[in-house]
Design a protein around this nucleic acid. Structure first.
Length: 1018
RNA sequence: GCCGGGGUGGUGGAACUGGUAGACACGUUGGACUUAAAAUCCAAUGCCUUUAACCUGGCGUGCGGGUUCGAGUCCCGCCCUCGGCACCA
């Protein structure tokens, strides 16, 4: 009898003592294989059979790849921050670290009992300071790249969890964790600009091997739509209402609707309507998202009293407010084209607004005015693929709908009434949480002094100017300067971009004189000063003597030691001379303290492949000299010789935040304090810690305090797969070498519920790292698959409520780890959901016992039996193919077929051992016990090379042919392999069953498929 | 409502590019072993029909149609189910 408990304990110890699954050295791009099981949340209720399924599948694959000669990385870690632990802590008044660590210890033991070949020396936990130090570093990276910002806006608030949630964490208007209904609140929060990456996130999906539906879901979630923003004049007002539309059927635009939160809504309301409109807006804002959707077809809305002018018809069309318009999508205002948009149709019907047909009806209707009581929307709607023609649209008449839309957009752009734009459903990712058990946000705040308040007012509510220093050998029109001038002019921003003298052999003093005379005695306090290349030095010198709002340095040629020496040594001796000449004398001495004092914010742009500015050294110089400089890295833009540079335009427009300061990397981690009352109040618990703010003012200046919100735990899990590569690194989140060798992940297994959350975020993080030049790939997970849900024996989702929860550790104890491994894989395809069956578990255990019994009691043959050899090779071929394709269920059925065969056949010991090697990834304990124990090998079966099949052994001697008459199976005949038609037909002559049907007629036609079927047509 | 996956025996599920549907397992039934039970081993097992029996014939992959010598697999139209999104202009 096979004693699984004894055997498993023995080999677990042996593998651990021998460090058998330590990550191998000597990894290259070609021999590495990175297998990633999704990071678990270590919940207090222990491991679930669904978790087990992931780890088992990944482990089988890992062991298989190892035996195929790959160097495998398989690691485990914990997504350890989060609400359940905190809620439990609140209930028990025990610190969440304690219950989290207990849960982790429990999880670890449970996972180890499954026999997974994980390198436990690389285990990570997101709640450990040496991990969350780098989560915080990622936040700072986002901040420096201009991708983290604070904004006050409507957020999803879960009142039960007392925290804000990201859109991705709201399911059907309910909290994904506790299921309570989500409220909308106005709050100031930290956001990550994932929307900047919308296009890159869509584009990358073409390059990954993921389940088709997951790719589609991500694409839909990002929700790219192309259309046009149309500016409408408002009668009697001096501002315009801009509507976003994808289908500008504008001859049919008969009204405009804006969201209750629309920014100019107040100015649209006329006195007569004020009371009623304001009441409506107030009520709408009080509603939850869910409440707004309750009566989908029951449109509500009120007329503001204002009118806009339809460009094409010249008609005045009323502007309404209605809550079906979303403030967060497009411009928050839409044009009502009721004939061809269902919502607009409902709205127009309810409020008796005109409906004009501008596309031919379903049955060829052409009359312009539609009566919604007699004609349904179905008659007029323009569905996908419907190619009806435009009518009642003057110059667009007769065009097919698609072309009509294009023509209209062209026309509007030509007339300057609109501009083509792209909109996304994707929203920026809100990452602040008002909870305790998370990574503190590494930022500082302070209340503004009176003086600063005035400055802030100046920065934010007054026109500002832009001053630009071009580079050596440049001109005001070269590089991006000319483009920038146009862009700024279009926005009405004043731009000083003079020609600096002697561009080929410049002198700093001359450049500064020119700039001084250009600027004259204008106040520069609210100016953005830009330098590029050598112009940066001038810009810095300028800032020595002028107060400026912001200093932007692109490709700064600052005098780092190697900079000068390399120029000195380089062939370009003239360059060195010129530089010395330029900076020469006192002019070259920069008073850094003065610059710091004068500059509101210093922003540095570096390129990862700048031939003149060494990236890391320059970065270090700025971090030393200007600790609070924000350094953004751009991927491969050379010396910023760009014709267009949208990044700089965005940066110019970004206001300076005087009340914020990022921590420096050297000050990380911001440790989560222990002296905290974590009862939720809606205020972050860190607010109440005394220790947390200790020494901050002393170190950073009066008034400064740490940010008390913590980071969304999804930030922790957005980069964990990098940490596994180099988990003990103090200098970086992972070394360059480790990143280059191991990434990207070759195989990632996880649940489909993370498609629009974790997987999107992880891709975003990776792309940001790529753009900042830290890595050379921009998709983290090449191959991704989902495991299906394992249901309870009653076919319901496992839950305490139904009492149908299976604890994997019980199964391990009762039947053994190999049994649960093989059972969970044998249940069905990995990606499919399937119900637990105790009887089937026993069936698998029976199979294990049969293998054990056969191995230990069978009398092995001395002579090789060729039929057995053929069977073995057939098994090798099928198991290999199935394992590669993750069809573990059919691989296991192949094992069963082979034991069924072997029990009745002559099998040599070597043949049987080969079979055991095939089974090793699936049943690691049993096979190891037999290999080393019963068969006396002195090394591990898991280090054995994967067997290869020999195709020549697979050719069968004879083959069974199906004989059909008129497509119906009547008999089968045995013939020699590869027989021709004649031989088969003669064999068929001996079949009475078939002859019975062929007796009376000569077949009209005979179809023969070699080695498969023969079909007589009579 | 829109988008996507899936409907195969009593059950979980097999079936390569169209070529013997139901591999493998569970369950069930019968038998062997046993005083007995469990365990184990052997045999049968899609449904219907027919036969005392070997057998005969038919029907079968959600439903209806089509293409084909031949369809679980391809095409058209439905039904059911699971999952996602949900006023995204």
């Amino acid at each position: 009898m096979y004693n699984h408990k004894e055997v498993e304990a023995k080999w677990r110890k042996y593998w651990a003592d021998n460090k058998q699954y330590a990550t191998p050295e000597g990894v290259t791009k070609d021999n590495k294989y990175y297998i990633l099981p999704q990071l678990p949340y270590p919940s207090g209720s222990g491991l679930h059979v669904g978790h087990a399924e992931i780890y088992i599948a990944c482990d089988i694959y890992s062991r298989f790849q190892r035996q195929q000669g790959k160097k495998v990385l398989q690691v485990m870690g914990w997504d350890a921050f989060g609400l359940p632990a905190e809620n439990y802590a609140i209930k028990t008044n025990i610190h969440p670290r304690i219950n989290t660590d207990t849960a982790i210890d429990n999880f670890r033991e449970q996972i180890k009992s499954l026999g997974v070949s994980v390198d436990w020396d690389r285990e990570v936990g997101s709640h450990n300071p040496d991990y969350y130090k780098w989560t915080q570093w990622f936040f700072l990276l986002m901040y420096e790249q201009g991708l983290a910002y604070r904004k006050k806006q409507t957020v999803n608030w879960c009142d039960s969890c007392k925290t804000v949630l990201a859109n991705e964490q709201v399911i059907d208007g309910h909290c994904e964790r506790c299921d309570s209904e989500i409220e909308l609140r106005e709050m100031e929060q930290w956001y990550l600009k994932i929307t900047d990456y919308a296009d890159k996130l869509i584009e990358g999906l073409d390059r990954v091997d993921w389940p088709e539906e997951s790719i589609k879901r991500q694409r839909d979630w990002i929700g790219r739509s192309t259309g046009i923003d149309i500016d409408y004049e408002v009668v009697g007002k001096d501002f315009k209402v801009t509507c976003f539309t994808t289908t500008p059927v504008n001859f049919g635009a008969t009204f405009i609707v804006v969201a209750p939160e629309y920014e100019y809504v107040d100015q649209l309301i006329t006195d007569d309507n004020r009371e009623i409109v304001e009441k409506y807006i107030e009520e709408a804002k009080a509603k939850t998202d869910l409440e707004r959707q309750v009566d989908e077809k029951q449109k509500t809305g009120v007329f503001t009293g204002s009118y806009a002018i339809n460009h094409l018809t010249g008609e005045q069309i009323p502007i309404w407010v209605a809550d079906f318009v979303l403030a967060s999508f497009g411009t928050g205002a839409v044009q009502g084209c009721p004939a061809h948009d269902e919502r607009d149709f409902e709205f127009a019907k309810k409020f008796d607004l005109p409906i004009y047909r501008v596309v031919e009806g379903k049955d060829g209707e052409t009359d312009k005015v539609i009566n919604p009581d007699t004609e349904t929307f179905d008659q007029v709607k323009i569905g996908k693929g419907i190619k009806r023609k435009m009518i009642n649209s003057e110059m667009f008449n007769g065009l097919p709908f698609d072309e009509g839309m294009k023509a209209t957009m062209d026309y509007f752009e030509e007339k300057g009434w609109g501009k083509r734009v792209v909109n996304y459903k994707l929203r920026d990712w809100s990452v602040s949480r008002q909870r305790f058990w998370g990574a503190p946000i590494p930022m500082l705040h302070k209340p503004l002094s009176e003086e600063e308040k005035a400055l802030n007012e100046l920065y934010n509510n007054n026109p500002y100017t832009v001053i630009s220093f071009h580079a050596w050998g440049s001109s005001p029109t070269s590089r991006y300067h000319g483009w920038l001038g146009e862009q700024l002019a279009a926005e009405g921003i004043e731009y000083f971009n003079p020609e600096l003298p002697n561009a080929e052999n410049p002198l700093l003093s001359e450049w500064l004189d020119t700039m001084a005379s250009e600027v004259g005695d204008k106040e520069t306090k609210n100016s953005v000063v830009i330098g590029r290349s050598l112009g940066c030095w001038s810009a810095l010198k300028f800032a020595e003597n002028h107060k400026v709002r912001k200093l932007i340095l692109a490709a700064p040629t600052v005098p780092t030691p190697s900079r000068f020496s390399s120029w000195q040594e380089a062939a370009e001796e003239k360059t060195y001379e010129m530089l010395v000449n330029f900076i020469g004398g006192d002019a070259g001495n920069l008073d850094i303290e003065k610059v710091k004092e004068n500059v509101g914010e210093l922003v540095v742009f570096l390129s990862t492949d700048d031939p003149y500015v060494e990236l890391e050294e320059t970065e270090k110089w700025f971090r030393t000299e200007f600790p609070y400089a924000r350094i953004a890295r751009y991927r491969e833009v050379g010396h910023f010789d760009l014709d267009e540079f949208p990044g700089i335009l965005e940066e110019i427009k970004q206001p300076v935040a005087l009340d914020l300061k990022p921590l420096q990397v050297g000050d990380l981690p911001v440790i989560l304090p222990d002296d905290v009352d974590f009862k939720p109040t809606g205020q972050s618990p860190l607010t109440y810690s005394d220790k947390f703010q200790d020494g901050i003012e002393k170190r950073y200046g009066e008034g400064w305090k740490r940010e008390v919100d913590t980071l969304d735990t999804f930030m922790c899990s957005s980069w964990y797969f990098f940490r596994y590569l180099d988990p003990h690194n103090d200098e970086a989140f992972a070394s360059k070498e480790a990143l280059e060798n191991w990434m990207p992940v070759d195989f990632y297994l996880g649940g489909p519920e993370h498609v629009t959350g974790h997987l999107l975020y992880s891709r975003f993080f990776t792309k940001v790292l790529y753009d900042a030049g830290y890595i050379s790939f921009d998709e983290p997970f090449l191959v991704h698959r989902h495991q299906g849900i394992i249901l309870g024996p009653d076919n319901r989702k496992m839950s305490k409520r139904w009492g149908n929860v299976i604890n994997p550790t019980d199964v391990v104890n009762n039947y053994g780890a190999d049994t649960i491994r093989m059972y969970e894989m044998f249940m069905g395809p990995l990606e499919q959901s399937k119900a637990w069956s105790e009887a089937s578990v026993q069936g698998v255990r029976r199979f294990i016992d049969r293998i054990y019994k056969f191995s230990t009691t069978n009398e092995f043959a001395n002579q090789l039996d060729s039929a057995t050899e053929a069977e073995l090779h057939k098994t090798i071929k099928k198991v290999t193919a199935d394992t590669i394709n993750l069809k573990f269920n059919t691989a296991i059925s192949e094992f069963m077929k082979f034991i069924n065969y072997a029990e009745k056949a002559q099998v040599t010991k070597e043949q049987w051992e080969t079979f055991l090697v095939l089974m090793a990834p699936y049943a690691p304990f049993l096979t190891e016990e037999l290999w080393q124990g019963s068969f006396g090998h002195s090394d591990s079966i898991h280090m054995q090379e994967w067997p290869k099949h020999d195709d020549s052994l697979l050719t069968q001697q004879s083959v069974t042919i199906a004989v059909q008459v008129n497509g119906k199976l009547r008999d089968t005949v045995e013939v020699e392999f590869d027989s021709d038609q004649e031989a088969v037909e003669s064999a068929v002559k001996d079949s009475e069953k078939v002859q019975k049907y062929l007796e009376n007629a000569e077949p009209k036609k005979v179809i023969y498929v070699k080695n498969k079927i023969i079909n007589y047509i009579i």
